[in-house]
């Protein structure tokens, strides 16, 4: 019925396969986001058979650079005492894929993802809830970045 496994068909723009992905840059005031997102990018991009991550820039055809440009939390909902009961955390990443041979820009985009977490009387628990939300956002954001890059139909 026309559904097929993209397998070979789906590759990065410009048909590059060997990609070098240095650590993301972090422009937010939340520490360590660059490590988390870089790890998830590596985890997600490695899933695609047509992408081969290389650690040595000389052997790569393209370089994947990214910046975590924004991270913010805002109150999402309030209980009957008008106290905050849920927060929504949002992260934004600007990503670009550039061919190493001639520096050509193959793909560029800004992707954002949000996740909600519960407030808590115990602020340690609230802090843990936020950390968990950040972990989920980072993974979904990385998946969304890969999907957008493969959109070339």
């Amino acid at each position: 019925c026309g559904y097929h496994f993209p397998g070979k068909g789906e590759s990065l723009p410009g048909g590059v396969t060997r990609v070098y992905a240095p650590l993301f840059t972090n422009r937010t005031s939340e520490a360590r986001l660059e490590n988390r997102v870089s790890n998830d990018i590596s985890y997600v991009f490695a899933r695609n058979g047509n992408i081969s991550l290389v650690e040595d820039k000389q052997q790569a055809e393209a370089i994947l650079e990214g910046t975590v440009s924004d991270y913010r939390t805002r109150a999402l909902s309030y209980d009957s005492d008008d106290d905050i009961s849920e927060y929504r955390a949002t992260m934004v990443a600007q990503v670009s894929l550039r061919s190493i041979a001639d520096g050509r820009l193959l793909w560029q985009g800004s992707v954002s993802w949000s996740e909600d977490y519960l407030a808590a009387d115990d602020k340690n628990l609230q802090n843990d809830n936020e950390k968990e939300a950040i972990e989920e956002i980072s993974l979904r954001l990385s998946e969304e970045i890969l999907t957008r890059m493969l959109d070339d139909f």
Partner: peptide
């Protein structure tokens, strides 16, 4: 405004970070 008058915590953070390649 809401989220100010019912602010439940105030978080302060001071951080120094340095990275070399994939290490930070």
């Amino acid at each position: 405004v809401a989220e100010d008058y019912n602010k439940d915590e105030v978080e302060s953070n001071f951080s120094l970070s340095k990275s070399w390649g994939k290490y930070s």
